[in-house]
Design a protein around this nucleic acid. Structure first.
Lengths: 158, 158
DNA sequence: GAAATACTACTCGGATAGCGTCTGTCCGAGTACAGCCGG
DNA sequence: CCGGCTGTACTCGGACAGACGCTATCCGAGTAGTATTTC
């Protein structure tokens, strides 16, 4: 159960976009250069963020990506769901229905005690990810490195 | 972030072993037949449970698998960790260290705010899985189907 | 001089290969039981 | 009749292919800005 590496890229890239501000668009190549990442592949992840409505894209010269919402309206859950998909990690294939006592015509996804247990854990995970926002994480970083916003704006302006 | 299908098999199979009781060993082929699963592949999952110390194996005629601990001493977390491994889903590759302000010689896995956020959610997920036991799930099923234990013991005896 | 137009450079977007991990399968090592042989 | 032994059948355990999804890359569609041409 390994999460895609693109999640880490998307999280840090969205943070950079938050610090740069939504008034200017940043090209994928420049966003990738910041972390020395392959630009084409980061572009692919950014497309997923566009489809999820987290960032907006602008084509052509002076184009690039910018946040579609305020940082306090974007949660880690949104970003993870955009990259990894919305379906939960544990997929109940209803093997109980194939057991001697099972009924193939019944939907066991709600009733199965195992599925319920896994779903409850999944919901706890999702709730934790949805409880924070990009703004919270920004504040967290700024507490340790107060000049981070200014530094990043400067780097992307140069 | 898709969980291995073997987790579902292992969970339900461990439940069956719990109902059968630890006094008799059940062959992998019979455990697989209960859910119409490929026996060789279920055997592979059972080997992982053996390595994790959740079940004990006995070779030769009258051999098979039996629970190594009481059902109330086995948590879903134990089974998931046995099949999926113990490392967390989000792996921090420390891309921050490659940023202009980063230092490649520093370990960012503890300090990175993104990694902390993901780790906290992961811990919430693990805590939920560790809070229940096989015995709890057994009781949950027996509430809906009181004869399940007797039925399963009968099926595996026949 | 101004406006319309063609051109160029730049960026996103989706389509296209390469690779690793999960899925599925097989055969060999080891063991308990049963039958057989000898005392 | 009893004990030891050999053979057999059964089961686990690790080694061996195949398939799916993640990783990585490329080129085409579309756009803004600019230079040019024409009135």
């Amino acid at each position: 159960m390994r999460m895609s590496e693109g999640v880490e890229w998307a999280m840090h890239t969205c943070l950079n976009l938050a610090w740069v501000g939504a008034d200017q668009a940043v090209p994928a190549a420049r966003l990738a250069a910041f972390f020395e990442l392959p630009a084409a592949y980061l572009n692919k992840q950014l497309q997923a963020l566009v489809r999820a409505g987290i960032v907006r894209s602008v084509s052509g010269p002076r184009g690039g990506f910018r946040l579609a919402r305020a940082p306090d309206e974007i949660t880690p859950m949104d970003i993870v769901a955009a990259i990894e998909g919305t379906e939960e990690a544990f997929r109940c294939t209803q093997i109980v229905a194939r057991s001697p006592r099972g009924d193939p015509t019944v939907d066991y996804r709600k009733g199965c005690a195992v599925a319920r247990t896994m779903r409850k854990a999944d919901l706890a995970w999702r709730a934790e990810l949805a409880a924070r926002s990009l703004a919270d994480i920004q504040a967290d970083v700024e507490r340790h490195t107060p000049t981070i916003g200014q530094d990043i704006r400067g780097w992307f302006a140069a």
